[in-house]
Design a protein around this nucleic acid. Structure first.
Lengths: 134, 134
DNA sequence: ATAATACTGAAGTCACCGCTTCAGTAATGG
DNA sequence: CCATTACTGAAGCGGTGACTTCAGTATTAT
């Protein structure tokens, strides 16, 4: 019962969730090449029409796609709202993120200051480690 | 060292999945203000230490955070790999997306002035704008 | 009119997710 | 030394998600 109208407001939880599924991202890739009917979209995917329709509903609910039924065919196309919301989120967080990362870089530099003190302004930050599990 | 960055490849599924959870995004926001221990991070969240540790593991696995244990305290900080991967994905898809959206815009414009002449392979009329949400 | 097409809806299965509890283990402080 | 702190691991629970099947309902083709 907590369903609110999200015509303009995209739920960021659902957006990320929607994009977290490879089938849905594949659907979006296909749609970025042009509008398609549900069955055309389903054909190369190896899953049922029903499953694809469910994915499309999710994409539509978070503003990543738009669909319209004409006759017995539902035609799907890409939508901008979801993508805009994603970019907006990134823009809003990148600043904070980079500030912190730069600060960490400085701390590291200070720490390594024992030797020389020459350094490129944009330190290379890569290599994240990590295991891959699960 | 002109590495193609293949081994540090962040799993995009997992990345989106990780970002889809509000608790994890809250953790990232806190971390963007500075490194924290697990218990400090857990304190204001109203969930158990264990749950927070699980979230942190997920964040670490997709390159959004880095943690290191010193003594009995695990200190967590923000990491760049995940965020970089996200921006990369966006950059790679924005082009396609915008091309398609621009094209759709053109089609719409054409359609509006198409009282005559033009053909188009499939002449399907898009009738009333039924904003049916289903 | 009949058949084929293109979905739609409901319901079920099964795996995974977020979270909990409980029982450790290893540093640290008095 | 013993107690406390800070986490770790395993197991379990309810909920959700991706997918299926099956039984419709329109719409279009023959």
């Amino acid at each position: 019962m907590r369903d609110s109208n999200l015509d303009a407001q995209v739920n960021i939880d659902r957006l990320f969730h929607a994009l977290g599924d490879p089938t849905r991202r594949a659907l979006l890739d296909r749609l970025s090449k042009g509008p398609q009917s549900v069955s055309k979209l389903a054909a190369p995917l190896g899953i049922t029409l029903t499953a694809v329709a469910q994915h499309l509903q999710i994409l539509e609910e978070c503003g990543l796609a738009h669909t319209e039924k004409v006759g017995r065919v539902r035609t799907c196309q890409i939508a901008s709202a979801g993508f805009d919301a994603l970019e907006q989120w990134i823009r809003a967080h990148r600043t904070l993120w980079e500030q912190r990362l730069d600060l960490l870089g400085e701390l590291l530099a200070e720490e390594n200051e024992a030797a020389s003190a020459n350094e490129a302004p944009n330190a290379d930050r890569s290599a994240a480690a990590t295991g891959s599990k699960r």
